[in-house]
């Protein structure tokens, strides 16, 4: 049954460490102007918890587990869908005035015209 993945002890800690480090570096490059979309975007990313909820609910074997599992999927789905909706809405609003692209200093990566 559980032959596919066995993440135990140190392997788990290595995964945590590398993910935290990678996240820190990636997020550190996000300019302050995008901090709200970043927050709601990372909010969306932890919506992945919904797949944990699905797994837990499918493995439920009594009413208590079913109820709590149902709540987990409900909340997780809300987290993911809502997080995506507000983030994409916000990001669609950021516009440049077009002529001033050389002036952009909010980002360490100079803005390119898309």
């Amino acid at each position: 049954m559980h032959f596919e993945m066995a993440i135990t002890g140190f392997v788990a800690i290595y995964i945590f460490m590398l993910a935290a480090f990678g996240g820190w570096v990636i997020i550190g490059n996000v300019p302050a102007i995008l901090h709200t979309p970043l927050m709601s975007g990372s909010n969306f990313v932890h919506g992945i918890v919904v797949i944990g909820g699905v797994t837990a609910l499918l493995n439920a074997s009594n009413a208590t587990e079913q109820v709590i599992g149902f709540v987990a999927v409900l909340l997780g789905a809300g987290n993911a869908a809502g997080g995506y909706a507000v983030t994409s809405r916000m990001l669609a609003m950021f516009k440049t005035s077009g002529h001033a692209t050389t002036h952009n200093i909010h980002s360490i990566h100079p803005a390119k015209k898309s």
Partner: peptide, 20 residues
């Protein structure tokens, strides 16, 4: 629940939130 995707996504968000 042995889901590395959750471990990675969770830790990335944890780092992002801590930084902010």
């Amino acid at each position: 629940i042995q889901e590395p995707a959750l471990m990675i996504a969770g830790m990335v968000v944890g780092a992002a939130g801590t930084l902010l």
